[in-house]
Simulated scan of single mutants.
Amino acid sequence: MKEEIKLFGFLLLLLMFNVNIPQKINVLRGSCVNIPCSFDVDNTHDKNLDNSCKAYWSDSSSFTSENAKLKPTKEMTGDLTKKDCTTTFNNTRLLQSAKYYFRLECNNPLKFSFTQAGVDISLIAAPPSPTLTPSTLEVEEGASVSLTCSSPAPCWSHPPALTWSPNLGQSQETLQENQDKTKVKTSVMNFNASHLHHGNKISCTAVYQKQDGIPDVTAETSLTPDISYSPKNVTVSVSPSGPVPENRNVTLTCSSNANPAVENYTWYSADGNQDTFIGTGMDLSIKVSKDRRILFCKAGNEIGVGRSSSIQIEVQCKYHILHLFNIFSIHI
């Protein structure tokens, strides 16, 4: 019966005295860290929250102000009279990877260690890679794209600087607060998808400043966009090239860039304002004639159709030797 009474009393105490702190914070060595913290006390102790109150932190759940590992000054701590125990450590060399607990002590009966919850501090040598949202990009050309890059900001006064490469459009940075009161730096870049972006890496880099004289450290995340687009740069090549004797066969080849791949090629002869269909396929074999037709091709996929410039095959003229002699004689 006594044990049940003790347990009930302990649970009642937890209801009257509670602390809200993050479960875990990754801290970059050589930088600062902010531990968001708020607490509540039994309302009978509200009058004891005065300027004499001090904050203490320790990696032991059993500690007092005398054996506390960390004794923040007022400049490092939030307004304890308003139940704000947010603490800033500018020198993380005072910290070690451990679970830390908060204790409140005032020059009055209000003294309490909030050991029901602690924050896991993990000292890391390199920052985590930024998070890209979405993590993959598959859109059609012309679509409006919004990419978000986010990186944790354990040191609120020196959040990471986020940069895009390449910078494809306007970007906006904000320092946002998570549900557990920790903060994250975000950058949103907006642009319109182009076929020029297809297959070219887009990366976001986070640059963290350190306070111990060590050079800045960076972390990067990237994605490779898959942009669907209609055929571009449709061109026609002729083999053999150059002036071709009349009645000689030549091969025309239509080529282009497209995603997805070209599904069909069609060939046309242009006569004034009228286009005449003459064949299909990437390659077209025709016999050269002196009528010097104007030709072009079209390439199509599920997105659309692209058209080449018009070409005219140069015909090599044949002159009989006697005919050339007669012309020469006339001019003499």
Rank of each mutant, 00 (worst) to 15 (best):
residue 319 Y to R: 06
residue 228 S to E: 06
residue 331 H to R: 10
residue 166 P to G: 00
residue 98 A to V: 02
residue 285 S to M: 14
residue 76 M to L: 05
residue 7 L to K: 15
residue 329 S to G: 14
residue 217 V to D: 02
residue 139 V to N: 06
residue 82 K to C: 06
residue 250 V to A: 01
residue 103 R to L: 11
residue 217 V to E: 10
residue 85 C to F: 00
residue 164 W to A: 00
residue 218 T to I: 09
residue 109 P to S: 06
residue 128 P to S: 11
residue 22 P to M: 05
residue 29 R to T: 12
residue 191 F to Q: 13
residue 128 P to C: 01
residue 222 S to T: 03
residue 162 L to I: 06
residue 51 N to G: 15
residue 222 S to M: 02
residue 114 F to I: 07
residue 261 A to G: 07
residue 123 L to G: 10
residue 153 A to K: 07
residue 237 S to D: 10
residue 22 P to I: 02
residue 278 I to E: 09
residue 190 N to G: 06
residue 264 N to A: 10
residue 280 T to A: 05
residue 241 S to P: 01
residue 177 E to C: 12
residue 83 K to E: 10
residue 155 C to E: 06
residue 118 G to T: 12
residue 321 I to D: 15
residue 110 L to A: 11
residue 189 M to P: 09
residue 113 S to H: 02
residue 195 H to K: 01
residue 233 N to Q: 04
residue 38 S to Q: 12
residue 239 S to Y: 11
residue 126 A to W: 15
residue 160 P to N: 04
residue 89 F to N: 11
residue 7 L to R: 15
residue 95 L to Q: 01
residue 331 H to V: 15
residue 151 S to D: 11
residue 18 N to F: 02
residue 83 K to D: 00
residue 84 D to C: 12
residue 173 E to Y: 05
residue 252 L to C: 10
residue 304 G to R: 08
residue 138 E to I: 13
residue 260 P to C: 10
residue 225 P to K: 07
residue 197 H to T: 07
residue 324 L to F: 13
residue 119 V to W: 03
residue 170 Q to D: 03
residue 285 S to Y: 05
residue 31 S to R: 07
residue 231 P to T: 01
residue 113 S to F: 03
residue 121 I to H: 03
residue 41 V to F: 11
residue 172 Q to F: 01
residue 289 S to F: 08
residue 110 L to G: 08
residue 245 P to D: 14
residue 255 S to N: 13
residue 170 Q to K: 02
residue 234 V to D: 03
residue 38 S to R: 15
residue 276 T to G: 01
residue 94 L to R: 14
residue 133 T to N: 13
residue 172 Q to I: 08
residue 205 T to F: 12
residue 241 S to Y: 04
residue 77 T to Q: 11
residue 101 Y to G: 03
residue 136 T to Y: 12
residue 170 Q to V: 05
residue 260 P to H: 14
residue 281 G to V: 03
residue 91 N to R: 09
residue 52 S to N: 08
residue 307 R to H: 10
residue 116 Q to Y: 12
residue 22 P to R: 08
residue 207 V to K: 15
residue 151 S to Q: 00
residue 130 P to M: 01
residue 175 L to M: 10
residue 172 Q to S: 01
residue 293 R to S: 05
residue 297 C to A: 07
residue 30 G to M: 08
residue 332 I to Y: 14
residue 285 S to F: 05
residue 202 I to H: 00
residue 161 A to Q: 13
residue 191 F to V: 03
residue 238 V to Q: 11
residue 262 V to T: 04
residue 20 N to P: 05
residue 326 N to W: 06
residue 283 D to T: 07
residue 310 S to F: 09
residue 116 Q to P: 11
residue 76 M to C: 09
residue 322 L to Q: 12
residue 260 P to K: 13
residue 291 D to C: 02
residue 162 L to T: 08
residue 11 L to K: 15
residue 21 I to N: 00
residue 131 T to R: 09
residue 327 I to G: 08
